[in-house]
């Protein structure tokens, strides 16, 4: 573990921070185009964040310290989760600090404080959002872990760098288990990042909100951190999906050329994923809250099938 590798980890974190708003803007833009609108410019999220960081921060009389600490904890835990995921290069030391189960733990930590912040002000909407978020996440987390376990059992490791390495080393293998795990993880990602059909990031009606209801009371730099964390989370799931299941192009050596190729590969894959997301969101309608469990149940089933087909088809006895 030398210094350049750790520098690369920092660079990756920086790329996540800078790239996450772009990905969101890209999805919005493609979606607008699909709906025959022009849509906001790609720089819009950056401008929003910049503006929010300069705005005065309002906190309700009834809020406690948890409300003020939550944005920082949510942001920090999401960013740390991002640093674990291989973005440009596969063999990075950050993956040894925290494996994929810790990644799930980081996301859970952020969510815990997000939900607490929602309940802190003492209005009905916050509690509503928290309650719904905890329901969705409670059902999504086992599905996510099952999908991840399929990978981990194939690679015999929960270290994401080892998983990616194993993928690269074994070349192109059509694994039914990966197919199912991928589909399950995609559904989980949709639910966890608050996209249609589970939640609508663009909604303005409090009664239908999940994520937005929890951060309804936030303003100024607190809101900016919360928004940024949500954008990071979307990119995190995106990178997890494209780089763990389809790692080709990722740098295995730390040379400028390899890293450049890695950046181009991951950018291309993410843009493509963004288009797919936009298409899916245009075609689907938001579900009722009580349809969401069925959706997540399906994700769980897919992850379970992935695991079973790994055991039955790929290892035998």
């Amino acid at each position: 573990m030398n210094a350049s590798a750790w520098l690369l980890v920092l660079l990756q974190a920086l790329l996540f921070l800078l790239g996450a708003p772009l990905l969101v803007a890209w999805v919005k833009r493609v979606k607008a185009r699909l709906q025959n609108r022009r849509g906001p410019a790609l720089s819009q999220p950056y401008r929003d964040l910049y503006k929010l960081f300069g705005k005065e921060t309002l906190v309700a009389h009834t809020a406690s310290g948890v409300f003020r600490a939550a944005p920082y904890i949510v942001f920090a835990s999401t960013l740390l989760a991002c640093t674990i995921v291989p973005l440009l290069a596969a063999r990075l030391p950050a993956a040894a600090v925290a494996d994929v189960i810790v990644l799930v733990g980081f996301l859970a930590l952020g969510r815990f404080f997000l939900a607490l912040a929602g309940m802190d002000v003492g209005t009905a909407f916050g509690g509503m959002g928290s309650s719904r978020e905890m329901l969705v996440s409670a059902l999504a987390e086992p599905a996510m872990l099952l999908a991840v376990f399929t990978l981990a059992m194939t690679a015999h490791s929960t270290n994401l760098a080892s998983v990616v390495d194993h993928q690269l080393a074994s070349g192109l293998i059509l694994r039914p288990s990966y197919l199912f795990a991928l589909m399950g993880l995609v559904l989980v990602a949709v639910a966890e990042t608050g996209r249609i059909p589970v939640d609508n990031p663009a909604t303005h009606l409090e009664l239908t909100m999940i994520h937005e209801a929890m951060i309804l009371e936030y303003s100024g730099r607190h809101l900016a951190l919360m928004e940024w964390a949500a954008q990071l989370k979307l990119m995190l799931y995106g990178v997890l999906i494209v780089n763990v299941f389809l790692p080709w192009g990722i740098a295995t050596r730390i040379t400028p050329a390899a890293l450049g190729l890695g950046l181009a590969a991951v950018a291309g894959k993410l843009l493509l994923l963004g288009v797919l997301l936009a298409v899916a969101e245009t075609g689907l309608a938001k579900m009722r809250l009580f349809r969401a469990p069925q959706f997540l149940n399906f994700a769980l089933l897919l992850a379970l099938l992935g695991l079973l087909s790994h055991v039955i088809l790929e290892t035998g006895a």
Binding site: G54, T57, L58, V59, A60, R68, V121, T123
Partner: peptide, 12 residues
């Protein structure tokens, strides 16, 4: 960023 550092209390 900006001049206002302290938070302002308001009604929810």
């Amino acid at each position: 960023r900006g001049r206002v550092r302290a938070v302002r209390r308001c009604d929810p």
